[in-house]
């Protein structure tokens, strides 16, 4: 084979893609960022503007930092109670999903047992059933056993939503701790529980916390089950869904922001563990 043929056939390096390629790349980046950021930006601007500015035209695009909308929203009948319910349900979800998910993640990463692959599959399969399909039977069942309209009842449903993530995240975190560390602890006088407590736990705690916060946000954002399963004790999402459709525009923006901002902050705080969930060591 001649040298000329060999060079002509060489694939081009990623670094010397042409200007058209570069344009496509950056256009893609801008588009994706805009897809996520523009709605959040509009939400923030309108929340921080006075009611008159929200409905006025043309828009300035700059918030006037008028707290009127937020103040009105917070003093709105039932908002604080709904906020409290949301927090309560989310905290319960967080505790339950870690209490159940973390041991499952540990078992998946440390033990070989028959049906392990099937079990992993089943954990993911729980997400295959749309909630609307399950909501009605669950509501009927909850009413029968008296769990309807209670924070714990809703937290149970949210826990089933959060568990696949809790299991997957903790599985990947536990897998990142070399078994040798535990074995070393065993040879140094620990039983299995002590080794877990003294060696594994301190190393996985940040990841477990992240997983817990993720469960919290799943519950915090969930609206369907919350709307179906609660009547008096509505969470913030269900409450807003019910009352905001009949509220003025500026109030809707304030409610939307109240929902989005905490979730956004939490997810941002634990973002690197979200990558870990998919096995990407991107720090």
């Amino acid at each position: 084979m001649s040298g000329a043929v060999a060079t002509a056939d060489k694939p081009r390096a990623v670094s010397d893609i042409g200007s058209a390629g570069k344009f496509l790349f950056w256009a893609g980046v801008v588009l994706l960022c805009a897809w996520v950021l523009v709605p959040i930006y509009l939400l923030a601007v309108n929340t921080l503007s006075s009611p008159q500015q929200v409905t006025a035209f043309p828009k300035t695009g700059v918030p006037s930092f008028d707290m009127g909308s937020i103040q009105f929203f917070l003093s709105f009948e039932g908002v604080l109670k709904a906020l409290w319910n949301s927090v309560l349900v989310a905290v319960l979800t967080m505790i339950l999903s870690i209490a159940i998910g973390a041991p499952a993640g540990y078992a998946l990463s440390r033990f070989e047992f028959p049906g392990k692959a099937t079990f992993r599959m089943l954990v993911l399969m729980t997400r295959a059933f749309p909630l609307p399909l399950l909501a009605l039977p669950i509501a009927v069942m909850f009413i029968r056993i008296g769990l309807d309209d209670t924070p714990i009842g809703l937290a149970l449903v949210h826990t089933t939503l959060a568990i696949p993530f809790a299991v997957l995240i903790t599985f990947s975190i536990f897998s990142g701790i070399p078994l040798e560390l535990e074995e070393a602890a065993w040879t140094l006088g620990c039983n299995r529980l002590q080794a877990f407590h003294k060696v594994v736990l301190p190393l996985v705690l940040p990841g477990i916390t992240a997983s817990a916060i993720f469960a919290f946000t799943i519950s915090w954002n969930e609206v369907f089950a919350a709307s179906v399963l609660t009547v008096q004790n509505r969470t913030l999402t269900a409450f807003l869904l019910q009352s905001l459709s009949v509220s003025p525009l500026h109030l809707r923006f304030a409610g939307g922001a109240a929902l989005v901002i905490p979730a956004l902050i939490f997810i941002f705080a634990v973002r690197k563990y979200m990558f870990a969930m998919w096995g990407i060591a991107n720090r």
């Binding site: 070399p178 040798e180 560390l181 074995e183 070393a184 602890a185 040879t187 140094l188 060696v199 301190p202 190393l203």
Partner: peptide, 12 residues
């Protein structure tokens, strides 16, 4: 007492 191939020194 055991010495492991990857040392297994506790990182925390």
């Amino acid at each position: 007492a055991m010495v492991f191939q990857n040392y297994a020194v506790f990182p925390h």
